[in-house]
Design a protein around this nucleic acid. Structure first.
Ligand SMILES: [Mn+2]
Ligand SMILES: [Mn+2]
Ligand SMILES: [Mn+2]
Ligand SMILES: [Mn+2]
Lengths: 216, 216
DNA sequence: TAATTTTTTTAGTCTCATCTAAAAATACAA
DNA sequence: TTGTATTTTTAGATGAGACTAAAAAAATTA
């Protein structure tokens, strides 16, 4: 239906749309590690196909069709990640790149059966919500640890940074999804945060606190 | 590692090599539903990469590397087909096209884990042997019904034609893998074959007899 | 063996997705 | 508001993989 490149652009635009209303050429270029001129080319093609709203120099937004396609790709990505972790026992930091390939397998019947096979999971291994077959999914109501106050109690439920390095860091320190933590202290000097988890204190930097999400 | 097109060419050449020693440009073109001139272009590239032995006008054969790559793609294809049938409950005539896409997912770690997850199956849903992670697999010792004599007894174990139409025909008439059949009579006029299966007589045409394989 | 047919290769185009370099539009600051 | 910096688009090129048409080689037939 859509080419690999088109799907990747739609996914990138969707992701960036969560942060800013109108997405700029340069933002997309950065997200996809490509050049602005290449982006402009593709934007014309996507606009032609009515997948995005685009007037030159004005940035882009997804049309309803474009958004539907993007959400479907995200659904596939997250379901495959869930499969890789839950059924094939990969670690959560190992699955993203494989899912980047698998998300482009085109059959929706396949993805619906996979969903059923796994019991319709609602979140992927990184805590991100999995859209259902109609494209509905709850927006994440999770908060970065960096924005909550001292004595806040919550459950580790997601990450903002999906890099292998960050996921491995969390794993190593036992900061994994499902664990209950309490914010004990915020160091005023460097905004480091001291957490209590299972009666142990763990200090994390501000960078980590920004990227680690909890459910209150 | 290799492009989609390269992988598909290697797979096609491997398949054709089972029948003829040296594979011709036209044979490959027919197999891949493309033009001879396109094949020639690709053959030069594959020879360049030392995946095939090629001198112009002389046809091609796979190098050891080329064969290894081809067998690996076949392994992936058949394991995914097995997964689709055994885990996601697709029918045997529905899985080929999906597997054509899935076989290009590049991770070997993934495919090895999938293999383990399914208990190291030895044959795919169509009775074709699945190469192990080292590329070893038994050659099919199955015989088309068309070549065995009257009173031969055997178990339906594979198909030569993998088309949806043929698989659906077999399904409809209960001629599925694992069933025990006996050749009752071969009609001299048109080489149709009358089989006995579970105390019922079934007549199949010569075309069907050629494409339906049994283990003796 | 010579003529004809078939197969294969070459030459030249096309589309898709990328790039660099240069031009145009927009944003920001003095 | 005018000049500079930044962003975005255009122009032109490239490589992969496909195509058509024509040339060359090989195979077949007379
Ligand atoms: Mn991911
Ligand atoms: Mn994820
Ligand atoms: Mn198949
Ligand atoms: Mn098969």
């Amino acid at each position: 239906m859509y080419t690999l490149a088109e799907e990747n652009y739609l996914k990138a635009i969707f992701k960036l749309s969560q942060i800013t209303e109108n997405v700029s050429t340069n933002q997309i270029a950065a997200e996809l590690a490509t050049k602005a001129s290449s982006v402009t080319d593709m934007l014309r093609k996507l606009a032609e196909k009515l997948l995005i709203n685009y007037t030159r120099y004005q940035g882009v937004s997804l049309t309803q069709t474009g958004e539907k396609v993007a959400i479907n790709i995200i659904r596939r990505h997250r379901l495959w990640e869930y499969f890789l972790v839950e059924k094939l026992h990969f670690k959560w930091d190992e699955v993203h790149d494989m899912a980047e390939e698998m998300e482009h397998i085109s059959s929706n019947e396949l993805i619906d059966r996979l969903d059923e096979f796994m019991g319709f999971p609602s979140r992927d291994p990184h805590g991100d919500p999995i859209p259902d077959s109609k494209g509905n999914f709850k927006k994440n109501d999770l908060k970065p640890i960096s924005v909550v106050g001292v004595n806040t109690c919550g459950i580790i439920s997601g990450v903002k940074d999906h890099s292998t390095a960050f996921l491995q860091y969390l794993e190593k320190h036992g900061l994994i999804i499902g664990k209950k933590i309490t914010v004990k202290e915020i160091i005023t000097y460097d905004n480091a945060v001291i957490l209590q988890m299972e009666n142990k204190d763990i200090q994390i930097s501000r960078d980590v606190a920004i990227n680690l999400l909890i459910a209150l």
